[in-house]
């Protein structure tokens, strides 16, 4: 049961990351590889605030999300000068920089040793320990994130994002300052990724830079594309596939010595097949 709850929490965290990244990649057509940076800022922010400054879980979450959004404004302003492949490369650059900061700002992040003993969330006197309580908390967080994303994509703001994805130049003809829209969705997405980071840090109780490197950004793109671009349900499905598929492959009965490698290979081949036959993802409505 603990194993299932553990996987549920991970699926939930990845679902929040997938939903938030889909706003930028799927709905706005901006291939951002900076998401791990925001995930990390949220995780480190709340860990430091709770552990070193004695903040409560809720206030640490709110403050870290705000910090992540502020970082999102800075990065988004720079990224607004790019588009297409250059956008992806520049955003990857930020992911690398963030990893460098997590690794080298030892006074704040404890460098490669990471931060231990991050407290479990306590809300109105109730402590959310690992297992069912934490899975329930993450479920609430996923619902909250889903509702925010649903509201964003179904509003007139969301309609403009979809139009940006299709033809940004044509949109400018009607007087839209598209840079502001792109920045706004990037910051919302960053804040939600930071939120996922706070949940992850408190759950695992330990974070280190390796959990937020550029490979994580690539994995999150995989979650979004796997489930489906411009589909919120797709992000939930993508997160479930991403976390659970490798776990399911544990039970196929391969010799222990090759299970790990085979799991990665089968997973990789599955992704290649998906890209060949359904590039918009399982539930996707749009292809990059």
């Amino acid at each position: 049961m603990d194993y299932i709850m553990h996987l549920s929490v991970l699926v939930g965290v990845y679902a929040i990351l997938g939903l938030s990244l889909n706003l930028v990649v799927g709905y706005s057509g901006l291939l951002s590889l900076a998401h791990a940076a925001f995930y990390g800022v949220g995780a480190y922010g709340s860990a430091i605030l709770m552990k070193d400054f004695g903040f409560s879980f809720l206030s640490a979450v709110v403050l870290s999300v705000l910090i992540t959004m502020a970082v999102g404004v800075l990065i988004g302003l720079v990224l607004s000068k790019f588009d297409g492949d250059y956008y992806a490369l520049a955003s990857l650059g930020f992911s690398v920089i963030a990893f460098g900061v997590f690794l080298n700002w030892r006074d704040l992040t404890n460098g490669a040793f990471g931060i231990f003993g991050i407290p479990k969330p306590e809300i109105f006197g109730y402590k959310f320990l690992a297992g069912e309580p934490y899975a329930f908390l993450v479920l609430l967080a996923v619902i909250f994130t889903f509702l925010i994303c649903y509201f964003v994509v179904n509003s007139s703001f969301g309609r403009v994002l979809k139009a940006i994805r299709e033809d940004e130049k044509a949109l400018q003809v009607f007087g839209y300052k598209t840079t502001l829209y792109k920045l706004a969705v990037f910051v919302i997405s960053a804040g939600l990724a930071g939120f996922a980071g706070t949940l992850y840090g408190s759950y695992i109780s330990f974070i280190d830079p390796g959990g937020f490197d550029d490979l994580v950004s690539v994995n999150l793109i995989v979650v979004v594309i796997l489930g489906g671009l411009a589909s919120l349900n797709g992000s939930l499905l993508g997160a479930a596939f991403f976390v659970l598929l490798p776990e399911l492959l544990r039970f196929v009965g391969m010799p222990d010595s090759i299970t790990g490698q085979m799991r990665q290979m089968i997973y990789g081949l599955g992704l290649i097949a998906l890209m060949m036959y359904r590039p918009q993802g399982i539930l996707g409505k749009f292809r990059l």
Binding site: K162, E166, D167, A170, V173, K285
Partner: peptide
């Protein structure tokens, strides 16, 4: 109205 229609196809 720019050349090539440029309507937003998925709207």
């Amino acid at each position: 109205v720019p050349q090539g229609r440029r309507v937003f196809r998925y709207l």
